[in-house]
């Protein structure tokens, strides 16, 4: 960080028009969501794929990796959001801006969250119906569990991507 160029840190002041600021809290949360689900899903698949290749399906040990993946994704969303929040607060303090007015959630964030939810909710009924059909076909529980987890993760990532696009490129309700 080149302090002299950006003139940081600055004293607390009222921001001028178009003064650059840090990424908002909800946008940060979206990024955390993408990383959390993408990484845990890839890790789960990485652990489980060699097992599928080597063992017969009904002996594939998938439960432990799945529990880890579930736990870690929830945990990393929580921890990631906290860290992102702290990073934002630090960034704002360095710029001499107020955390409450620059980082908090407002109606635009709710609108964008709702917009994303309306566009990506399809993943949920797909997961439920798909899992039901797989259960009816008496498929091995490994496939059902993996299907539920992977498609749900894709849905969560899609939700976050829609949100980030709305923040960056703008969206019309």
């Amino acid at each position: 960080m080149n302090n002299s160029k950006h003139n940081l840190p600055r004293e607390p002041h009222r921001p001028a028009d178009d003064e650059p600021t840090v990424m908002g809290m909800d946008e940060r949360a979206a990024w955390v969501q993408i990383f959390a689900f993408a990484i845990t899903t890839i890790a789960y698949l990485a652990v489980v794929t060699p097992r599928v290749a080597n063992d017969p399906i009904d002996e594939v040990e998938w439960v432990v990796p799945m529990l880890w993946a579930l736990g870690l994704s929830i945990l990393s969303v929580i921890v990631g959001s906290i860290i992102a929040g702290i990073g934002g607060a630090i960034g704002l303090t360095m710029r001499g801006l107020d955390v409450d007015t620059e980082l908090s959630s407002d109606s635009r964030d709710k609108d964008i969250a709702r917009h994303a939810r309306l566009r990506t909710y399809w993943a949920t009924p797909v997961v439920a119906l798909g899992a039901l059909i797989l259960a009816m076909l008496d498929v091995d529980t490994f496939w059902i569990g993996t299907f539920v987890f992977v498609i749900s993760s894709i849905g969560a990532i899609a939700d976050a991507v829609v949100r980030i696009r709305a923040y960056r490129r703008g969206f019309v309700a």
Partner: peptide
């Protein structure tokens, strides 16, 4: 300033910027 307007509306400064740039369409109420 954008900050003043944001304060009056109860939104963040980024939202005011987004509205001005045509990147966000405020609700009818707003």
């Amino acid at each position: 300033t954008q900050a003043d307007l944001a304060e009056k509306l109860g939104v963040t400064r980024q939202t005011v910027i987004a509205i001005e740039q045509g990147k966000y369409s405020p609700s009818l109420e707003m």
